[in-house]
C-alpha cells in the first residue's frame, strides 16, 4: 500500500518534472515559433499603439479576439478582412453609439489617427497563422436553399 512519503514524492516529483517540461515548451514557443506565426516583422508602431487603445478601452469586454474575450459583440480576428477599413473606421469614429439591430456599442468617437492605429492592429491580427481558427462554416453547403 502507498505510504504518505511515497505520496509526497509523487506530488513533488510530478510537479517538478511537468513544470520543467512546460517551461521548456514555453521557451520554444515564445522564442522560436510565435515570432514566425504572428509575423512579428509586421508589428509596427501603429500596431502597438492600436493594441494599447484596444486594451485601454477594454474592447475584449464585449468582443472576442483570437477567440478570447466576452461574447456580446462579434469576433474581431478577421474583422479587417470581413468588414474592410472604411466600415471599421466609421464604427470607431462616430459620436453616437453604433447599434446594428439594437445592440449598442460605446461611442468612442476616436480621432482619425487612433482609429487608423486600431485598424492596423486588427489587420496584423488577421494575418496571423492561427492553426485554422476561425473555422470555415462546414455545414453551410448542406443547408437547403428554398425554391423561389
Amino acid at each position: 500500500m502507498l505510504s504518505k512519503n511515497q505520496a509526497r514524492a509523487f506530488f513533488l516529483g510530478g510537479t517538478v518534472v511537468f513544470f520543467l517540461i512546460f517551461l521548456g515548451l514555453s521557451w520554444h514557443t515564445l522564442a522560436r515559433e510565435v515570432p514566425k506565426q504572428t509575423h512579428e516583422e509586421n508589428l509596427t508602431e501603429a500596431v502597438v499603439r492600436g493594441k494599447q487603445i484596444f486594451d485601454k478601452n477594454n474592447c475584449m469586454g464585449c468582443h472576442t479576439i483570437l477567440g478570447e474575450g466576452a461574447y456580446y459583440a462579434p469576433e474581431l480576428t478577421k474583422a479587417y478582412e470581413r468588414k474592410g477599413e472604411a466600415y471599421i473606421k466609421t464604427v470607431l469614429t462616430v459620436k453616437e453609439p453604433w447599434q446594428p439591430r439594437g445592440r449598442k456599442m460605446v461611442a468612442y468617437a476616436m480621432s482619425d489617427q487612433d482609429a487608423s492605429d486600431v485598424i492596423a492592429f486588427l489587420k496584423w491580427i488577421g494575418e496571423m497563422d492561427l492553426n485554422g481558427f476561425p473555422p470555415k462554416p462546414d455545414l453551410q453547403s448542406k443547408v437547403p436553399v428554398p425554391a423561389k
Partner: peptide
C-alpha cells in the same frame, strides 16, 4: 493527508501541461 498528496499530484501532472488547451488557436505552434 496521504490522499491529499495524490490528488494535488494528479492536479499538477495534468493541469500544468493542460494549459496547452489555451494555446490551440492564438498564434502558437
Amino acid at each position: 493527508e496521504k490522499w491529499l498528496y495524490v490528488i494535488v499530484g494528479l492536479t499538477f501532472i495534468s493541469g500544468v501541461l493542460g494549459t496547452g488547451h489555451h494555446y490551440y488557436y492564438i498564434g502558437t505552434p
